[in-house]
Computed example of a mutant assay.
Amino acid sequence: MAIENTPMLVPHLVVDDAAAALDFYAKAFGAEEMVRMPGPGGKLIHACMRINGSLVFLNDDFPEFNDGRSSTPTALGGTPVTIHLQGPDVDARFQRALDAGATVVNPLEDQFWGDRYGVVRDPFGHHWSLAETVREVDMAELLAQMNAQA
C-alpha cells in the first residue's frame, strides 16, 4: 500500500455528537461520508466527509485530550470561523440547511460585492456561509459601495 502525502488544507470540526453531525451535514449540505472511526464510549474519534468537493474532518469533543477543556463552539461561547460554500442555486441550498435544522445568522440577500449570500449556524454551533455569484462587480464599483456603507 502506497502512502500518499498530498498537500491539502482541511477544516476539522469538533462537536458534541459527531454521529448526529454527520447525519445533519448530509441532509443540510449533501455531505458524503468517507470515514467514520469509533473511539471510546461510542464517540467518534475521527470522521471525514466531502462537501462541495472538499474534505472536512470531524470528531466528538474529547476534553481529556485538550488540556481538560471542551473545544466545541457551544463550550467556547461561539465560533470565530465560518466555513464558506459557494455554488449555484443558493436559495435552495440555504433552505435545505434550514429544513435540516440550521438557524439563520445572516439572512440570504443580494450583496454589493455581487453574491447572493447568507450565513447559518448548524445545531452544533458552527457557522456556514452560502453564496452564489449573481453579478460581476468591478473594483471601482466595489470600492464605491464599501465607502457608501462606511
Score class of each variant (00 low, 15 high):
11 P>S: 06
69 R>N: 14
125 G>Q: 05
98 L>I: 09
64 E>N: 12
35 V>S: 10
131 A>T: 02
110 D>Y: 01
20 A>E: 09
44 L>S: 14
137 V>G: 00
147 N>A: 13
143 L>F: 12
76 L>M: 13
114 G>L: 01
85 L>P: 07
48 C>K: 08
46 H>T: 10
101 G>D: 10
24 F>W: 06
135 R>S: 01
46 H>Y: 15
128 W>G: 03
130 L>I: 02
113 W>R: 00
125 G>A: 09
103 T>L: 04
140 A>I: 06
79 T>E: 08
99 D>P: 01
85 L>S: 05
61 D>Q: 13
43 K>W: 11
111 Q>L: 13
140 A>E: 10
82 T>S: 09
115 D>M: 12
18 A>H: 02
109 E>V: 09
82 T>P: 02
5 N>C: 08
26 A>F: 07
71 S>M: 15
8 M>Y: 03
56 V>Y: 13
67 D>Y: 13
124 F>E: 05
19 A>V: 08
60 D>L: 02
31 A>F: 03
109 E>W: 00
88 P>W: 02
95 Q>P: 02
83 I>N: 14
136 E>F: 01
60 D>G: 01
94 F>C: 07
98 L>S: 01
43 K>C: 10
83 I>H: 14
108 L>C: 03
71 S>W: 13
146 M>T: 08
76 L>C: 10
103 T>E: 11
19 A>C: 03
47 A>N: 10
59 N>S: 14
86 Q>P: 00
81 V>C: 08
118 G>V: 04
59 N>M: 12
68 G>H: 10
41 G>Y: 05
144 A>V: 14
150 A>Q: 11
71 S>Q: 14
27 K>R: 13
127 H>R: 15
142 L>A: 11
6 T>K: 13
54 S>F: 12
1 M>W: 02
126 H>W: 08
70 S>K: 15
118 G>I: 08
106 N>V: 13
104 V>C: 00
